[in-house]
């Protein structure tokens, strides 16, 4: 593990300022991913700025009725919070589907958004990886193992999945990421936060170099009370998703009035299923509608022999999850 300097920040201003004036520094939240990546010789920060003392660990309802989750709220705390459990059950379920109890006790919600892919080849410095070393090539696309890889949002440079469960629920919920930097505050809709790999797979978010995530805001969204997260994986627990579905459904007289759908395990970033949603809106809340919507979403998937199963698996899982919400 490479040496680094460790400093702590006590205020947001302090953190942002230290970051801007310290070369090759990174913010340190729960460290559940970053420290692993430093150990694995993938991230090489010279300085870590510990931000866990910043007063950003509350979950609260704000005046608009929206719920604001401080960026340093631990995953366990967010999942257990009554506001989340009652208004956004999909988010509680998504967080609890990820990692282990110990990891969730450490991991922060801001950090969760920034976790990096678990692609085998990204983690093995002996393998070429465009995400880790720009322009080096991609061992997965060059005949490697691709069973875990993405089928949506891929590019010729990278097909690695985004590993977060939480972010998939946030995508379905139209969450907004709040940030702060020397240039001031920003509100980034979750859909604009993560980027597809395209020609620059190493650049994963629209976050500025020194920008600090301060909170995640969940808008008022009544349909979210009828929501569910379904994660399909290779063992009962402690595995990344092959396919996951975050869904919220509102119906009136057998017709769908509001549907939110996002997918994990299949996309290079948390995948908001807009195509499926447009099929669902106004249609009868039946299994055949759900299947049609799911198939429409997956129709643009780019499949490889190893991961081709993800398309039918996603269709089945979406259909089953939406059916369970009727």
């Amino acid at each position: 593990m490479r040496r680094f300097t460790y400093v702590t920040a006590n205020t947001v201003t302090d953190a942002v300022k230290t970051k801007a004036t310290t070369p090759n520094a990174k913010y340190l939240g729960g460290g559940t991913n970053l420290v692993d990546l430093i150990r694995a010789d993938i991230e090489h920060p010279d300085t870590l700025i510990d931000i866990t003392r910043l007063p950003l660990a509350d979950v609260e309802e704000i005046s608009t009725g929206a719920v604001r989750i401080g960026a340093l709220t631990r995953n366990s705390h967010a999942a257990a919070h009554p506001l989340i459990r009652t208004r956004y059950p999909v988010l509680t379920q998504a967080i609890l589907a990820g990692a282990s109890g110990q990891l969730r006790n450490m991991a922060t919600v801001g950090g969760n958004l920034l976790q990096r892919t678990r692609c085998h080849y990204f983690y093995d410095t002996a393998a070429p990886c465009n995400k880790r070393s720009p322009g080096e090539g991609c061992a997965a696309l060059n005949g490697g193992y691709t069973r875990n890889h993405a089928v949506l949002g891929t590019s010729r440079n990278c097909i690695a999945t985004h590993p977060s469960d939480m972010a998939v629920a946030l995508a379905a919920l139209d969450a907004v990421v709040e940030t702060e930097s020397a240039e001031g505050n920003r509100r980034i809709p979750i859909e604009d936060f993560h980027k597809p790999p395209g020609e620059t797979p190493y650049s994963e978010t629209t976050l500025g170099e020194n920008e600090l995530i301060t909170a995640i805001e969940l808008p008022v969204l009544p349909p979210a009370r009828n929501s569910r997260y379904r994660k399909v994986r290779d063992r009962s627990s402690y595995a990344f998703a092959l396919v996951s579905v975050a869904a919220a459904l509102e119906t009136e007289n057998g017709r769908i009035t509001n549907a939110r759908l996002a997918l994990g395990g299949v996309g290079t970033h948390p995948w908001r299923a807009r195509t499926a949603e447009s099929v669902l809106k106004g249609a009868p809340a039946t299994e055949s509608t759900f299947r049609e919507a799911a198939e429409a979403e997956l129709s643009t998937a780019t499949l490889l022999p190893d991961n081709a199963f993800k398309a039918p698996l996603a269709v089945r899982t979406i259909t089953a999850t939406l059916t369970s919400l009727t």
């Binding site: 080849y121 983690y123 093995d124 393998a127 490697g144 193992y145 875990n148």
Partner: peptide, 12 residues
Amino acid sequence: HTGRIVNANLAE
């Protein structure tokens, strides 16, 4: 291609 074990860990 490389004969290298790609899931040399207990996560994968």
